[in-house]
């Protein structure tokens, strides 16, 4: 790994560790290997959002040309959000792409991703299905996001109706995650989700 990249990451790692966000538990950062090329981050779901109470894990890959190119970051925890792929966890955020500046740091990037959870940008979607639900049925979107937070990120709010519907499909032999995606996609209409799964 290039000298600058390793040096920068080491410094940024310390910066994050000493930050107040780590102290109050909003952020976490740990090394995956000893070569400083891969890290694991964790952000807390912001309050007054459907993600509240959840802990979301991020995969951070540092390119050879860091900080002149942005780090590659995606969600490892599954999340229902217009700017994050519900399948791969890929994030649509300008500073991770063309608006990246070498002066940005891991801490600022992690905080930007956390801010994205409070303020979705449905007109620049990563996941078109989620974005459509966000625009057309915001209440259902909130419930779905809460349910996903509960199931995958340890959030406190159990949406009983959704849990039961997923259970009905898993009883029929469908994989749980597939069942959840299908139901979420079809606004929790059991019939349409079943049709899609078995077609």
């Amino acid at each position: 790994m290039a000298n600058i990249a390793a040096k920068r990451i080491k410094r940024e790692f310390k910066e994050v560790m000493k930050s107040e966000e780590v102290a109050d538990g909003t952020l976490k950062l740990e090394l995956v290997n000893n070569s400083w090329t891969e890290l694991k981050g964790q952000i807390a779901g912001p309050s007054e959002t459907p993600y509240e109470g959840g802990k979301f894990i991020l995969e951070i890959k540092v390119p050879e040309t860091y900080p002149f190119n942005p780090p590659k970051i995606r969600f490892l925890t599954r999340i229902w959000h217009p700017n994050v792929s519900s399948v791969t966890g890929a994030i649509c955020l300008d500073i991770l792409k063309d608006q990246w500046a070498a002066a940005l740091t891991l801490r600022t990037v992690l905080l930007s991703i956390q801010a994205l959870l409070s303020a979705a940008e449905p007109n620049d979607p990563q996941d078109a299905v989620v974005a459509k639900q966000y625009r057309e049925n915001i209440e259902l979107f909130h419930l779905t996001a809460q349910h996903w937070t509960n199931v995958y990120a340890g959030g406190p709010n159990v949406i009983l109706d959704f849990v039961q519907k997923v259970q009905m499909l898993t009883d029929m032999g469908v994989d749980e995650n597939q069942a959840r995606v299908a139901l979420s996609t079809f606004d929790w209409e059991l019939e349409r989700a079943t049709e899609q799964l078995f077609s």
């Binding site: 600058i4 040309t65 002149f68 608006q99 500046a101 070498a102 002066a103 940005l104 600022t108």
Partner: peptide, 24 residues
């Protein structure tokens, strides 16, 4: 750092629109 920044940008095919390295 300027040198590396320019080299990375040129390798990616950017020429007229290489921005300053500062945030925003």
């Amino acid at each position: 750092c300027w040198t590396t920044h320019f080299e990375v940008q040129i390798m990616q095919g950017v020429s007229n629109n290489i921005q300053c390295m500062a945030q925003e």
